[in-house]
Amino acid sequence: MKRRIPLTITLIVGLIVICSEFIPHRPFSQISSELEVWFMIISGFAILLGQLNLIKTNVLKIQYKQRNWPYFVITLASFFLMVGTGALWGSQQNAGLLGHGTAISSAIGSKPFDYLFNNVYQNLQATMFSLLAFFIASAAYRAFIARTTESILLLAAAILVMLGNTSLGTLLTGWLPDSLSFLHLPKVSEFIMKYPTTAGQRAIMIGAGLGIIGSSLRIILGIERSYLGGD
């Protein structure tokens, strides 16, 4: 009962979605678009569940005075700060419980939620993302060592594309005569991207696509049920 009904739901829903691809006739066309709205609503609740879990685990950590617990107070405080400002005055064009908070937003230039978002959240996010520039450099230094045929190919492709993608490539090979224009680094880099890289990516897409198709088929047919967990 605890597993059979969910498995039946998966089977029916999966088949409806597949059938509606081939059958334009009602009711399939309508059912599948209604299902898509349901999907959105249920995943909305799932996101809320995540936040509730976050509160629960952090409260527990603080309660039991786990190592570094004062930091988790900061987590909860910033969570409630964000939720509080959003709930009271809303965000962008959405009104909150206290309306749009025109007084407070004219004082600080935008709604408190948006202010936090623009000045703190966004900067944290962008900086976190920009760490990648440093990591890509150190990963390249460490990994691109010409040891085997594979690693030489990896290294050569990376360096040619890196040169070709900047003005460096133009500087280095721009002087070559037109008859040798295929050796222009930007052209070489474009060639690598267009042919061998596309070939490699296509092979991965086809393989991974089949892997995904196999898994979804097993799930629809109820053969793969690990996502339901234990009994």
Partner: peptide, 21 residues
Amino acid sequence: QIFVGLSAGYWFIYTIFNILI
């Protein structure tokens, strides 16, 4: 920790305003 807290809060508000409402 501020990042984790703010982002969780952001998605909470976002979900309510942009999905559920």
